[in-house]
Amino acid sequence: MLDRNYRDVATGLALALIGGGSAVYALTHYALGTVKRMGPGMMPTSLGVILAVFGLIIAVPAFFESRKEIDVRFRALVILSASVLSFMLLIETFGLIPAVFSTTMIATFAENKVPLRRGLILAASMSLLTWTIFILGLRLPISAFDWPF
């Protein structure tokens, strides 16, 4: 493999692709109008073209730069996403406290630094805290416990 800054090449090309794609889509789907009376397609098309140009400005010089190290941590990404999604699934079915408890609990697994017992204590105190602030204090229309069946 050649010594290139693949991070910037990919970044620039991705932006160019998004820009170009949007421009083409807007151009083919929405009326461009005239300069005097612009249609809905004018702005997205021009923005897309400008974005594509900037993408190339980023990508092209990167071909001549040396490689940069990147650090992607899929473990944290997957676990934290699961944590947020659990909130989304539980908030309307089981209520605030189960949602907060599970979000906190799952989130602690993203790093192996919180022992299980302390994680449980953290989750319980977060449930109590958010209940106090949002239901008792701010009176948000969310139920603390709910039962979907």
């Binding site: 944590s83 908030i91 309307e92 953290l122 958010t130």
Partner: peptide, 21 residues
């Protein structure tokens, strides 16, 4: 985890819509 919880509640409370999360 605490920040994550507050972001989740904040996201939900704007429109009381779980899909917003």
């Amino acid at each position: 985890p605490a920040i994550l919880v507050f972001v989740c509640i904040g996201a939900y409370s704007v429109r009381a819509n779980a899909a917003d999360v």
